Amino acid sequence: MTRYLFDNTGIQTENRFQALEACYDPFSRRQLARTGLAPGWRCLEVGGGGGSLGDWLGERVGPGGEVTITDLDPRWATRDRPPHVRVLRHDIVTEPLPLPADGYDLVHARLVLLHLPERLDVLDRLVAALRPGGLLVLEEFDCTWQPVLTAPDAASAALYERVQAALMAQLEKRGADGAWGRNVYGAMVRAGLTDLTATTYAESWTGGGTGVGLHQANARQVADGLRAEGLTDSELARYHALLANPAFTVNSLPLISVTGRRRAAGEAAAR
């Protein structure tokens, strides 16, 4: 059994990727562009999902650069690409990273380490994959803050919160950390990176819109687990109806994006 609660074998995966790409890719692209991303860079996209960000990186680095997209199950990223963009089936926890001779200029991972009990070890591996002076961009949710902004009634708001709590319980049983997003900056400091910056992105998601489609896909994929947390079929049906109701609005899952630089050889730890 995969360690991920939302593995890529589910029929809901395409809808989940579509929601994530529509809601968060523009922000992620802005954060990656801020690194100075340029033609000729060598980039690693870890947990590439549907491959949208890896493809965008390939466009930015051009044929003189190199982009490697990895995923535990890359089936949703399989399509024709230019030779300088490759997709690999890879387990970031157990398998050696594919490395260029002197490391990557840029490593990016979105919503990967949150799911991994070994997240700190994986972070160290990602730092080690950078060339001296290379940049790591980690983007993770803080699942602890997603307030309901409007709801048809108090019972509807309470139902949403109950389903989300059950979902978090299922994630935690797989070793995920729903608060990881707020801890990424400190973890990257401890990993020895410097020149750190952090930016948080959130927006409102209204019932029937693209964003709540992420909640729809997640709840449908792990419906059995939600039932195991005590939710009934009637409550789940009401939850999905609520997510389709334009009278319901919730804050999106905040995505915290942290960028840090690996010190150059001989650079002092204190700056």
Rank of each mutant, 00 (worst) to 15 (best):
T2N: 14
R3M: 08
Y4V: 08
Y4G: 09
N15D: 15
N15M: 11
R16V: 11
F17W: 12
L20A: 05
E21Q: 14
E21M: 09
A22Q: 10
P26E: 08
F27G: 00
S28P: 03
R29W: 09
R30P: 02
Q31S: 13
G36H: 13
L37Q: 01
P39W: 11
G48I: 01
G48P: 02
S52H: 06
L53Q: 05
D55H: 13
E59T: 15
R60M: 13
P63I: 11
G64I: 12
I69Q: 01
I69M: 13
R75W: 10
R79E: 11
H84D: 01
R86H: 11
L88P: 01
I92Q: 00
V93D: 02
V93C: 08
L99N: 01
A101F: 11
D105K: 02
V107A: 04
V107W: 00
L116F: 10
L120Q: 08
L123N: 05
D124L: 06
R125Y: 06
V127W: 02
V127E: 01
V127G: 05
L130N: 00
L135W: 02
L135R: 00
L138V: 06
F141V: 06
L149Y: 03
D153F: 06
Y160I: 11
A165N: 12
A166D: 03
M168R: 10
A169I: 06
R174L: 02
A176W: 00
A179C: 07
W180E: 01
N183A: 09
V184I: 14
Y185A: 09
A187I: 09
G192E: 08
L193Q: 00
T194P: 04
L196T: 09
T197P: 03
Y201G: 08
T206P: 02
T206S: 12
G209F: 01
T210L: 11
V212M: 05
G213C: 11
L214S: 02
V222S: 06
D224A: 14
G230Y: 14
T232W: 13
P246E: 03
T249K: 08
T249L: 12
L253Y: 02
L255V: 13
I256G: 00
V258H: 00
R262K: 15
R262T: 02
E267T: 15
A269F: 14
